[in-house]
C-alpha cells in the first residue's frame, strides 16, 4: 500500500459542519478524518471498494472487508447549488454534490472553496476535511487547481 496522504483539516470552516453520529464500528474512519486521512472500505473477496463504509460488502456480502487510505481525488458526478436551505444549512447557497472517487464509489458531499456558480459535472476535486467535533471531520471536496 502506498503511504497515507494527509489532507488539510480546516478547524473552523465557514460552511455549517454538523456533527456526524459515529457508529462504533466506524470509529477508525472518523478518527482518521481528524488526522486528515481519508479511508475507504474495500472487500478482499471481490476487490470492490464501497461507500458509505460498512462491515459487510454490499456487492458480494463477504465480511472480509478492510480500510485503506484513499487517493482523496475524484470528479463531480452531479451537483446542485441549493438556494433554499434548511436546518443547519439555512444559510444557503451551498453546493451539494456526488463525487465519484478515483477508487470508484460515488459519495454525497459538498464542493467548497470556490464560487458556487463555477462547479461543473466532471470537474476534478480533492478532499478537504472540515472539523465538526473533537472526534470527527467531514470529508468535503474542493476543485483541484492546475
Amino acid at each position: 500500500m502506498s503511504p497515507a496522504r494527509v489532507f488539510e483539516v480546516v478547524a473552523a470552516p465557514a460552511l455549517a459542519t454538523p456533527v456526524p453520529e459515529i457508529a462504533p464500528e466506524l470509529a477508525e474512519f472518523w478518527t482518521a478524518t481528524t488526522e486528515g486521512r481519508f479511508l475507504v472500505r474495500r472487500c478482499a473477496a471481490c476487490g470492490e471498494a464501497h461507500w458509505y463504509p460498512r462491515m459487510v460488502c454490499p456487492f458480494c456480502h463477504s465480511t472480509d472487508t478492510g480500510w485503506e487510505d484513499a487517493s482523496g481525488r475524484g470528479t463531480v458526478y452531479t451537483f446542485s447549488v441549493v438556494r433554499r436551505g434548511a436546518g443547519d444549512y439555512a444559510a444557503a447557497p451551498y453546493v451539494l454534490a456526488y463525487v465519484e472517487l478515483a477508487e470508484g464509489p460515488r459519495m454525497m458531499t459538498n464542493i467548497v472553496d470556490c464560487d458556487v456558480e463555477s462547479v461543473r459535472v466532471g470537474q476534478e476535486v480533492e478532499v478537504v476535511f472540515h472539523r465538526a467535533s473533537a472526534d470527527a471531520a467531514l470529508p468535503r471536496f474542493r476543485p483541484v487547481t492546475a
Binding site: 453520529e21 452531479t78 434548511a86 444549512y89 459538498n110 467531514l138 468535503r140
Partner: peptide
C-alpha cells in the same frame, strides 16, 4: 438510532427534498 447513511449524507445538507431531486435532474441533463 439514526440510519447508518445519516453521517454520510444528511450532514452535507441533503434535507431539503428538492436538493436530492436536483442532483438527479443535473445528471439527467448531463
Amino acid at each position: 438510532t439514526p440510519p447508518p447513511e445519516d453521517p454520510f449524507e444528511t450532514v452535507f445538507g441533503t434535507r431539503p427534498p428538492m436538493a436530492s431531486y436536483a442532483l438527479a435532474a443535473r445528471r439527467h441533463m448531463y
